[in-house]
Computed example of a mutant assay.
Amino acid sequence: MSIKKEILKTIGDLLMEKLKNLPDGLPDLMWFDKQMGQFVPPETDDTAGGTPEAGISLPLPAVLMEYEPFAWQTTGGNTQKGSGNLKFTIYCEHLADSFPGSPVRDLALQHFDFVAAVHQVLQGLQIENVMSPLTRVLDEEDLAPDGVVFSVISYNTTIFDHSTSRTRNHVMVTNPGLEVKYKEESSRPVPAVEIPAFLT
């Protein structure tokens, strides 16, 4: 299995399991997937991002994960390790007012609590022999005034790819044009050695 596929599946399954029945009336996580621009309308996609639009068909809250660039180096036995960031975008519905005095202020700011719940699952998460503990290195908040609010958190990690290790990729290559000759008996005469008689 691809190392990236294994990590994405493991993290997705864990988030869907842990982000259920949360305290303080927080909603359950409804959707996890690979980030593929699901919230960027095709007509406005400039490949540089975009803002989520109200009415997107994904159920909310949702978490989308992407791999940022990883720098790879080869280690012993032809295995590799890569260092880089995993980026998680957390999308929540946002239909209430958050100004001081608003009767629905706590509801409007609830997405911060949900993002904190996601972070509590991810910070320090590791997969033995596959991924080192996740460490938060960056976060940012949505500024767009629409019905969907999102937060982005990036975690630094190192992933270990053993798929090219010598034990898995060791192939004996034979050359059919190579003629192997074994040492033949020498044609040179063997000198006779006189064995002296025993002294009596």
Rank of each mutant, 00 (worst) to 15 (best):
M1V: 11
S2F: 13
E6D: 12
T10Q: 13
I11T: 07
E17F: 09
L19T: 02
K20M: 13
L26T: 04
M30R: 13
F32V: 14
K34F: 09
Q35V: 11
G37D: 06
G37N: 10
G37L: 07
Q38A: 07
F39G: 01
V40A: 04
P41D: 07
P42I: 12
D45L: 07
A48K: 15
G49L: 09
G50P: 00
G50N: 06
P52G: 02
I56K: 05
P59C: 01
P59E: 06
P61I: 10
A62G: 04
V63R: 06
L64Q: 03
M65I: 08
E66R: 15
E66D: 15
Y67R: 07
F70H: 02
F70W: 03
W72E: 08
T75C: 04
T75E: 04
T75M: 13
G76S: 08
G77R: 03
G77D: 01
Q80W: 04
K81P: 00
S83E: 13
F88C: 04
T89V: 15
I90T: 15
Y91G: 03
E93G: 12
E93W: 06
L95N: 05
F99A: 06
F99D: 08
F99P: 00
G101I: 13
L107I: 13
A108P: 02
Q110C: 03
H111P: 05
F112K: 11
F112L: 11
D113L: 13
F114Q: 07
V115I: 10
H119G: 04
V121N: 00
G124F: 08
G124D: 09
N129M: 05
V130H: 10
R136T: 07
R136F: 01
V137M: 03
L138M: 14
L138I: 05
D139V: 07
D139M: 13
D139H: 14
E140Y: 11
E141I: 11
P145N: 12
P145H: 04
D146E: 15
D146R: 11
G147H: 06
V148Q: 05
F150V: 00
F150C: 14
F150T: 07
S151G: 03
S151Q: 12
S154E: 14
Y155I: 14
N156Y: 10
N156Q: 13
T157G: 03
T158Q: 15
T158L: 05
I159V: 14
H162F: 08
H162P: 00
S165V: 01
R166T: 12
T167H: 02
T167G: 08
R168L: 14
H170G: 01
M172W: 11
T174M: 07
V180S: 01
Y182F: 12
Y182N: 00
K183V: 12
E184P: 01
E184H: 03
S186D: 11
S187H: 09
R188S: 07
P189H: 07
V190Q: 09
P191V: 05
E194P: 01
F198V: 13
L199F: 12
T200K: 15
